[in-house]
Amino acid sequence: MRELRPTLDKSLKDVKGTLVRARDPAYREAKHEVEAFNAAYCAVLDDGDLEDWPEFFTEDGFYNIVSRENFDYGLPVGLVYCEGKNMMRDRALAIAKTSMFGPRYLRHYMTNTRISEIGENGMIRAETNYMLIEVLSELPSGRIHQAGRMQDVFETQDDGRLLLKSRVAIYDTLLVHNALVLPV
């Protein structure tokens, strides 16, 4: 079973190793793949097509949106907490079909991708900054809804595709504006 406390990324403490790995062709390749993955991921969410969102995860995938405050103190509570792709399907269904919320546009940006580890069987550990812009009918100029970073674990499938085994979104913007209706 997964540890409740998200672990800190040890590679942050290894600047030299990080810079060396950045030049490693395998890491460059992995970074490229992760970026392509995230571009597709953002496009699906930005499009509002929530029911496709679980398809980025393995069946046993884990997803959590946790505040930096909770993360830093080792507290597990997240805005969204999904154990397994079924819970993600349920969230997609519930939000898409039953939830009432005002119309909005969301735009996701994911940058500063770092590959911290490439493991056995195509496991990739990556960290990426993210920003979410929210545009509401009463706020057409938009605003930053969330800024933070993703801690991801990818699993390479038999056909070569990456899927998320775990994605923990850690947001710095502690005070959520009103509500967070879609995943990040």
């Binding site: 949106i65 509570v77 997240g78 805005l79 969204v80 907490y81 999904c82 819970m87 969230r91 519930a94 939000i95 039953t98 939830s99 009432m100 919320f101 005002g102 959520v176 009103n178 509500a179 967070l180 209706v181």
Partner: peptide
């Protein structure tokens, strides 16, 4: 906890309302 909070199935709706 997915039911409640700022991203909870019920929480979102109350906040919006």
């Amino acid at each position: 906890g997915n039911l409640m909070g700022p991203a909870g199935y019920l929480g979102i709706e109350d906040n919006e309302a």
